[in-house]
Simulated scan of single mutants.
Amino acid sequence: MSIRSGIKIVLVIAVVLLLLVALAWMFQRKLIYLPDATAPSEDQRPASAVDVTLHTEDGLRLTAWLVHPTDRDRGMAVLVAPGNAGNRAGRADLGQRLAAEGFTVLLLDYRGYGGNPGSPDETGLRKDALAAWRYLHDEAGFDNGRMIYFGESLGGGAVSHLATVEPPAAMLLRSPFTDLAAAGQRAFPFLPVRALLHDRFPVESDVAASAVPLTVVIGTEDSIIPAQQSRDVATSAEQAGATVTVVEIAADHNDAVLAFGPEVVQAVVDLSIHCGGC
């Protein structure tokens, strides 16, 4: 191969890499947020749920489901912040199972999800989580000492930040990452993810800042969020003085047992008992 040919190959590779970086910069949120933008149908709604409207501080009206307890009422609310894909219909089983344990459950859909207006980003999801808290506090009548935040994967970034502003009685994070860049680097090891990302979701530092009682549910076979990242979140919270429980389940990220299985539901029950909510 001649020197000239070698230079051409290097230039082609450089151009391709620059193009990939440029595309990642421009369309990164299309890779992060994977909403099902359709509004769930009535037959997807849990039997004891009602439609409610959340009002964000930037003027959006978001639809959500409030699932009423179907067993003895514990007098506690669980705010469920979902992960990055689907809509609230995919969390109906979780809502029903928590309601059967006596919890009032708010199944949040972010902006751009589940028929809601707007486009998701970190700032927006924080506002959406705050709107959900405001509904539970102002409309449903739950003070912070009777709330548990449940953050699923990316949703952990929304509620862990909310906990620094409005600390709940306790919080459960299912499959949390330390921060979004760490999760993104695993998915795209060939890109300078930390330098490119617009959204950060610093879960590890947020749980340390709030130091509320915390349960971390980990999928030991998680192929999307490494189990060690979730363990690091738990360790940081514990070092900050929080009471921390770790529940490890032999499951992958999207397995039903990790989404709404008995160990996950029992973890919420245990948190409520620990914080004196029963």
Rank of each mutant, 00 (worst) to 15 (best):
S5Q: 13
V15K: 05
V16Q: 09
K30D: 15
P35F: 12
A37N: 12
E42G: 13
R45K: 15
D51R: 10
D58W: 02
G59D: 12
R61C: 06
L62D: 04
A64F: 10
H68E: 12
D73K: 13
M76S: 03
A77R: 04
A81F: 03
P82A: 13
F103Q: 08
F103A: 07
D109H: 12
T123G: 15
R126F: 15
K127M: 14
Y135F: 14
F142T: 01
D143E: 12
N144E: 12
L154E: 07
G155I: 07
G156S: 11
S160T: 00
T164V: 01
E166R: 14
A170R: 09
M171A: 11
M171T: 00
L180C: 03
A182P: 00
Q185V: 01
R186C: 11
F190N: 01
P192V: 10
V193M: 14
L196R: 03
H198Q: 13
H198L: 05
E204P: 00
S205D: 14
V212W: 02
P213M: 06
V216E: 07
V217W: 03
Q229P: 05
S230H: 02
T235G: 02
S236E: 09
I249W: 08
V257M: 11
V257S: 11
P262N: 08
V268L: 12
D270C: 10
D270Y: 07
D270G: 01
L271G: 02
L271A: 13
C275S: 14
